[in-house]
Design a protein around this nucleic acid. Structure first.
Lengths: 343, 343
DNA sequence: CTGAAAGCGCTAACAC
DNA sequence: GTGTTAGCGCTTTCAG
């Protein structure tokens, strides 16, 4: 079949182990033989068999990624390809490979992870969307297998390396931004309350209101799916109230698209009649009508740092647990306006 | 370390080979021992080491995917995650794994492929965006390594299994749709003329015009990048003409977003002043203002069929070369209107 | 139907 | 610095 280390060894008049050392760039090998061997490898078109290497060295130089179940809604959100890009950049920069799996259910995903890990196909894992009861995390912890999570783990925060935004502050700032514009009827449209992002952002929202002595109205807090439909639904409910909110905080640009749409349908103008601050600052936020004021959470960097820190951990098991906070930034565009005092 | 086949064998009082046969579900093994062995595997929590298996069996049950270079613009287009979803579904359904690489340049990508293929990490490859001079394709062909391309290969079409739309017809129909609405000044906004999609669609466009005896104006044909900016640029140029087009054909929804934006800036109303037909029918097309009439090219299915046919080819090398055409469909929404005869 | 044994291609002690 | 050798954990003849 293909060229093996032995053939290279033979042709170069050295032992297979020497060839192996040349590949590994072992320092205690003479420049002369190194060159000689390399030349032969070149001639023969030698490429190492990675499986053999992994089997023997117990390392794959591959990291695993569990994707949200493929038929899942999450997939449709541009958040996903964006983190993937970051992850992939980080992985690439360290010359690792990336392997991914999907599963249509929690169990399928779990099985996929087991298969990757026990099958020794990957050296570490990156996890998205940690759930409150996360079997995968539990398993990985038990196995003492390297992993990092993107977002905030629901449990054992101190013991799990994770990359996250400071979502409390981010939302607090966004809320304060609206308050400074004179808004007091500010609604919160978030995702599932089971997700840590939602919890954190809701906290930030509440803190800002409290600091400004604005009473928190539970009716103004909506939890919907991270989808356009979610946004539409929320607006429907919110706009049915006697006292309509004058500003909306929406935790995801994609949802905001739905919000904008529904608002338009109802004949409510942004930012004249209502202001909206969005989150994520994906490319779309710039292209919507009106362009969105959105909190950029630096999704790419989230992915990039996740893979970097995972690889660090893989290559040095003594690496301490880390919490990496990626900065955020409110990007002002045209979806907010100062409130005209009516009273 | 982990449990191996030997330990299972010992505990089950059989030979390692028997255990191996049980894993492979070899038919000529008695139900009794099969059960016995399975029970022990269960108890010990045995999971096969996939590297060892691959090394020995020369199959990885993994398929490789080259992504557009990560920092690349293509990544930002929702097309990518969507095919990925399809691919991933197909791969998952056959219980294969998916490995991906990126490269920042042609050479990096090429190297990544070599490494996957020669390193025996994958059994086959899926290629996106075949370029006119494609080193990767050339290499894979020389190696006689299984691969399929999504889209139309620039060369050797008859000898390469690929999954594509009938882009000529798709664009022809879209153009005819506009012609039937009374339009005669129809512009074409496409991607790089080096891409086969562009070539095909441009052909469809020209055919439709010819059939309707409408002269083809070269000024009405624009080639831009598959990006919002591309769309904006094209509109700028097109709207500078004395005789403005009354309808626009845009080959990508994402570009169309840019088009819509620029049109709005210029105070040109869609569909009142100008009609636009878009392509891809990604989720966004429904949410834009106005909702887009777009040709659905069934991106998910493109990916799904690609992985399915690749796996077929891997598992049966006698499988003939195939050209799989995925159907398309014009989805009418509100971005087109009948032209009001002025003259 | 099952066992014994020879590899798959590479790495990693351990010698020298 | 380099060679020898024993595996890594599995599959696959070949016997029986």
């Amino acid at each position: 079949m293909s060229v093996t280390i032995k053939e290279v060894a033979k042709l170069a008049n050295v032992a297979p182990s020497t060839v192996s050392r040349v590949i590994a760039n072992n320092p205690r090998i003479s420049e002369a033989t190194k060159r000689k061997v390399k030349k032969v490898m070149e001639e023969l078109g030698y490429h190492p068999n990675l499986n053999a290497r992994s089997l023997s060295s117990k390392a794959t130089h591959t990291i695993g990624l569990v994707m949200p179940s493929s038929r899942d809604i999450v997939f449709q959100n541009p958040f996903f390809p964006t983190v993937l890009q970051g992850i992939s950049d980080g992985v690439h920069e360290k010359k690792y490979a990336l392997q991914m799996t999907t599963g249509k259910s929690e169990t399928e995903i779990f099985d996929a992870v087991i298969q990757m890990v026990q099958g020794k196909r990957v050296d570490g894992m990156i996890l998205l969307n940690s759930k409150v009861e996360d079997k995968v995390i539990q398993y990985l912890r038990e196995m003492d297998f390297p992993f990092v999570v993107i977002g905030k783990p629901a449990k054992h925060i101190e013991e799990i390396t994770h990359v996250d935004n400071d979502n409390v502050s981010a939302m607090k700032e966004a809320t304060e931004f609206l308050i400074h514009l004179g808004h007091r009827q500010i609604a919160f449209i978030g995702g599932s309350p089971e997700l840590m992002v939602t919890v954190d952002r809701l906290n930030g929202y509440k803190q800002a209101l409290e600091n400004a002595d604005i009473p928190i109205k539970e009716e103004y807090i909506k939890h919907e799916e991270f989808l356009r439909e979610g946004g539409q639904e929320a607006v429907n409910e919110l706009m049915a109230f006697q006292l309509r909110p004058t500003a909306l905080l929406v935790v995801d640009d994609f949802m905001t698209l739905g919000v904008l749409n529904k608002l338009d349908e109802l004949g409510i103008k942004v930012p004249e009649d209502i202001s909206v601050v969005s989150f994520n600052n994906i490319l779309l936020s710039e292209m919507s009508k009106p362009p969105l004021t959105s909190v950029d959470i630096n999704i790419i960097k989230l992915g990039l740092e996740a893979s970097r820190s995972l690889i660090e951990k893989i290559e040095n098991s003594a690496e301490p647990t880390k919490r990496i906070i990626i900065s955020h930034q409110l990007v002002e565009r045209s979806s907010c306006s100062r409130i005209h005092k009516e009273k």
